[in-house]
Design a protein around this nucleic acid. Structure first.
Lengths: 214, 214
DNA sequence: GTCTATAGATAGATAGAC
DNA sequence: GTCTATCTATCTATAGAC
């Protein structure tokens, strides 16, 4: 088999195993067995397990970055900021919750990767973060986001809400599109009604006294 | 040394290592060395590494659950739903970003834990989720959350935004209180102004054409 | 309760034949 | 490019002395 093909199979298999089993529970022997080669063959294509991890994680970021950018740009120049950010949210969610394993593998494993791997991934991650920052900054500049809103916090909270879906999303539950819709709505308008805060009537029915109920 | 003391030291050390190194990169030998005993001594106090993991993770959930519940209940019955949920957000963030290692260790490692460990933690996790659900349901019942808002999605997105802070929070940056403030504001009112959506003027200055810019 | 000693398994990685 | 064979390290866990 040609080098490029085998190399690609190793990457694809690694992404899938990293996504579903995690970095530590995926051994080189697991990958080799799944692919149908011997462990030593993997080292012809990759210098080490770390380098395999590094490339897999990098491809995951590049994939979601490309998907999000394309989704936003395909809206054309006439789109509103809300539409653009909504498209970014949707593309991000579809990518990390979809069949492609690379992006979800990155999200799930990045913080557990060896330091040298994280270091090599830092720039591609930062580039993706900057893209989101540019979306939010443009929206704030044009008044679609309140002037006194801290964009770095807002961005990290939003990305966090999206990334955490890999922990709870199930194909049997709400679809990525439904989640994206609601996330966009909350992000821009909140769960409230813009009405005056209502008093809590019997808000804590089971609690007899504050503190020490346990 | 008495059994209870050593046992507690093992748990505390494990929580710290699990938080900062991860489950897989924390060996029983690491813990023993740090504590100043031999590896075999750990097995007098814990049946296996898995059982140590299981107890550490369980304590993490119980801790944050207690902290959040106390924070909400200490507000008293006159508090609004916004105040109650804001207090829950703040307590959750303070706990997972603070000095105590148990809760952050849980958040960081739960999805990477062996299946039998996750299974044993399922109920305590579910109980904490139900508490949050009760807060949101009460708010929706009294009109503080829009009737057509799906509470399960809203809850998971909110908890996700909070939990993901362990990935990016730095003591040198924004404080947990500042993050909590902004999170509450976004959750209830969004980043927008409630105004009509504004058109994006020159929203994508660097993009010449949709698709294919790379 | 903690120790010494070690079993038994598995990990990442390399050498050299083909 | 892939193989067989193997090295070395490290891991979880146990047996039995003290």
């Amino acid at each position: 088999m040609k080098a490029g093909q085998t190399r690609q199979r190793i990457l694809d298999t690694a992404a899938a195993w990293f996504r579903h089993e995690g970095l530590a529970f995926t051994s080189m022997a697991d990958l080799a067995k799944f692919i149908g080669v011997k462990t030593s063959s993997l080292y012809y294509h990759f210098e080490s397990k770390d380098s395999l991890i590094e490339e897999t994680l990098r491809l995951g970021i590049e994939l979601v970055h490309n998907e999000v950018r394309q989704a936003v740009e395909s809206l054309g120049p006439g789109a509103t900021h809300r539409e653009r950010i909504r498209a970014a949210i949707l593309a991000h969610l579809r990518t990390i919750l979809g069949d492609n394993d690379y992006s979800s593998a990155n999200i799930i494993n990045y913080s557990h990767a060896p330091v040298n791997v994280r270091q090599k991934n830092r720039e591609v991650r930062a580039a993706y973060g900057r893209y989101w920052a540019s979306l939010l900054e443009a929206a704030q500049r044009d008044g679609a986001i309140a002037k006194d809103m801290d964009l770095s916090i807002a961005r990290m909270l939003l990305i966090g809400a999206l990334n955490w879906t890999v922990e709870w999303y199930s194909p049997k539950g709400k679809t990525p599109d439904e989640i994206a819709d609601q996330c966009s709505r909350i992000f821009f308008d909140g769960v409230g009604l813009g009405a005056a805060p209502s008093k809590a009537k019997s808000a804590a029915p089971k609690a007899k006294s504050p503190r020490g109920s346990r």
